[in-house]
Design a protein around this nucleic acid. Structure first.
Lengths: 120, 120
DNA sequence: TAAACATATGAACAATTATTCATATGAAAG
DNA sequence: CTTTCATATGAATAATTGTTCATATGTTTA
């Protein structure tokens, strides 16, 4: 039985108080951490990764992406919406067709670093 | 009613055959795409992002991380396991205590690029 | 060996999420 | 204006996942 019921693990800290303070000082605000996790969650789906890889090569319409990946138009459209909301892709309308493309180069860097990590 | 029931969207492709071929040639194998999404899924959780930020400053034991983040030892331990499985962190045992630290610098780059994207 | 402590882990539950299906929107052509 | 076509989206379902609780593992000290 622990002396202090609020603490479920060790009742002292290994880390020096100054280190604890340093960690807490460097830690971004809660909201920023949440947004970061939220952004990476967008990369955490095979379909969205595939869409981004397709857009690495060229802008492309919803239907072409669907056919290239062998998935339904609806599934792709739903995922494009999520990518768009995260500002990872942008779009341009041409008549009935909507062409999607990468928003900036962070996407390439992030995916590239991920691939590097896996390759190690 | 579409002429070809297998195709749910446009029955021609906007993309030229050579572009389609180029995209398919550049696309990594299915397994690699799956592993990539899998890796980013690890970054897609606030608790794990917080743990990584803590480890940016210093190696630290499970219990200190739990106290710093105000979470239970069990919750942290489960998440450390996932981070370890993805080879994002490594550990070192010292008596009863296990100290965790970052495995390499890809983590900093990836999170940094994510933060840059959000800051734009 | 037994007790205490730090960490790990299995099972269960709640919450999130990707796809499907049906349908809505919006643009061009007849 | 009506039809056709490309895209978007709401609701439902199945699958995945983070935390909690209870307990196991492994190390140190008495």
């Amino acid at each position: 039985m622990a002396a202090n019921p609020e603490i479920q693990c060790c009742d002292y800290m290994h880390a020096h108080p100054e280190l604890v303070q340093q960690v807490q000082a460097q830690m971004p605000p809660e909201e920023e951490l949440y947004d970061l996790a939220d952004l990476f969650r967008v990369f955490g789906d095979t379909t969205r990764i595939k869409i981004l890889y397709v857009l690495f090569e060229s802008e492309m319409c919803v239907c072409d992406i669907a056919q290239l990946l062998g998935m339904t138009q609806s599934a792709i459209s739903h995922q494009l919406r999520i990518l768009k909301q995260s500002r990872l892709i942008k779009f341009r309308r041409e008549g009935k067709t909507v062409f999607y493309s990468l928003a900036d180069d962070h996407v390439r860097t992030i995916i590239g670093q991920g691939a590097d990590h896996l390759a190690e």
